[in-house]
Amino acid sequence: MNIFRFAGDMTHLASVLVLLLKIHTIKSCAGISLKTQELYALVFATRYLDLFTDYISLYNTLMKLIFLGSSFSIVWYIRYHKIVRRSYDKDQDTFRHYFLVLPCLLLALLINEKFTFREVMWTFSLYLEAVAILPQLVLLQRTRNIDNLTGQYVFLLGAYRALYILNWIYRYFTEPHYVHWITWISGLVQTLLYADFFYYYFQSWKNNVKLELPA
């Protein structure tokens, strides 16, 4: 495992921890899109079907369990926790799941490396992960007041994706036959979705003002 891959995983882990910190300690999920969180839970549930059939490493298994466990518990908190759910911006978080889920499922059925159940599910999870952040970005734009933890959460998620691209470039040059077009293109699309957010994030950081996305 190279440094970019490891740093990417750690950034991903940090983003989840920041979100859990906000929900668990401050008992607030203001500005967090439940739609995005539900899509991530679906992403991990469909991607990690190999958890009990293929063993890669202890690190791999542990991380998979962490991402599965954290994504489902975040959804649980926002939906059912009696204090946390009060801060959920339900009226603003109106993105429709199936606008993203159905096209991704169709695309995975059409474009995949192998037409087996697990491989199609894996591919579906890649496509869905690429667009799962959209409800969250829409919500950020509607929320005039983006708190620090929410901004950091989205920033860390974007950084994780950018580091994965560096990881693929590194692996391409160091490993024989390392070519994964589906993973790369969906990963690139996913990272590009953060470009706008990154721009405003760095602007607010440079000028030391509160993060706000233009309508």
Binding site: R5, D50, I56, N60, K64, K114, N167, H177
Partner: peptide
């Protein structure tokens, strides 16, 4: 020869 499809990334 077909490459084994290793899902070693997260």
């Amino acid at each position: 020869l077909e490459q084994p499809h290793m899902h070693d990334e997260l």
